[in-house]
Write a protein that binds this DNA or RNA. Structure first.
Lengths: 203, 203
DNA sequence: GAAACTCGATACATTATTGTATTGAGTTGC
DNA sequence: GCAACTCAATACAATAATGTATCGAGTTTC
């Protein structure tokens, strides 16, 4: 190793390409983004891109894997540190306030990713499987906290999980076009309502 | 007017381009679709496209206006024919089963459109306004049926509307990647739960 | 039924995008 | 420290996509 590194490491380059791609996808959508635009946004030429990824698809898949892994990791971590659900949700809330959503990406990009996965289902069914694993993690959390609670649950846990997840992404989506009637805490407010009236889990 | 028309009318051509664009956007996404691909899918050349629309953006905006107008019209129509909410929801359910969702387009395209509008917000704020008008229509329905009902509502009507709309699109989205745990009737099931436990409206 | 008009096809010029092959500065192993 | 290696830049060839100008068959008007 030389004393002062002038060339960025491979991981640096990949990381910069990830971030640049996120910005470009955010602005132009996945389909509308050219490889040139991504490389340029990262301060590189296409050469750097092709040296790191075979194609735009491969970059997206790597990003996706990275994001899902981080999201699942964050959730598990939070779950370890906050055993009871009230604390867990409070912790989620404060994460949410710090500009990051629970999945750790911007809402627009998040939606783009889901559409990408949906379209890629036939070519690459493993991508949707990854997203379903994250879903399952959430429903499992709801299921176990429900079981451990003294409260009787009105809804069955799997269904309650589906409900919560639909609300999360539904609000995220609607906030894009109607932030006025969809304040940032809509999701948590809805969760609160569910807890209070349906007993999806104890506090 | 000649006795037998051999050339399609302008409206025919536009309609075919709409349908073709819907198919192409569905497959490749809005950003990934070329004008050539759209024209070809409609059985035309690019010439026909440019003779009818200035750009891809203009086509999308026309499609969007068309779709929102039809959706609002359908909802109003249904509302006129089914005065009480239970009938209204039943009618919605049967529409839903006939391969069309309440907005009258495929889920993937629906999401693409919303993302397009979100991105176009700065350039064209009127598009988001249109979508908000549809949102408002739904919340108004909930509001008036709530007021007319004898039941006490736990939630305020605007919030209940936001909740219902988030669920609609949330399930639509998740059905794309996890149809197993997101059956087609998820939305209606959720509505039923809300009615039963939160009294968002009377039946 | 002839002149004016309409509209999609065609041709063309231009720019964008892609992917590969090669180069050379920077780094690592020995 | 030098040989082997790494990796982003560059150059290049080929294809894709765009937008405009023009043509001509079909349609409308009178």
């Amino acid at each position: 190793m030389s004393r002062v590194r002038t060339r960025p490491t491979r991981d640096d380059t990949r990381e910069k390409l990830f971030e640049a791609a996120a910005r470009v996808f955010e602005e132009q959508g996945i389909g509308g983004a050219s490889i040139e635009a991504i490389a340029a946004a990262a301060g590189f030429t296409r050469g750097a891109f092709y040296s790191n990824f075979k194609s735009k698809d491969e970059l997206i898949i790597a990003m996706l894997e990275d994001h899902v892994e981080q999201s699942i990791g964050r959730i598990r971590d939070l779950l370890d540190r906050h055993k009871n659900l009230a604390d867990f949700i409070d912790a989620l809330k404060s994460m949410d306030k710090s500009h990051h959503d629970p999945l750790g990406r911007s809402p627009l990009l998040h939606m783009e990713m889901i559409l990408f996965v949906a379209r890629a289902e036939k070519r690459r069914p493993e991508l949707a499987k990854r997203l379903r694993a994250r879903r399952k993690l959430v429903t499992d959390i709801i299921e176990t906290t429900a079981r451990n609670s003294g409260r009787t649950t009105i809804l069955n846990p799997t269904w309650a999980g589906a409900l919560v997840l639909a609300l999360e992404d539904g609000f995220r989506l609607h906030r894009l076009i109607d932030p006025e009637t969809t304040p940032p805490d809509s999701f948590f407010r809805a969760i609160g309502d569910l807890q209070r009236t349906m007993g999806i889990s104890s506090a």
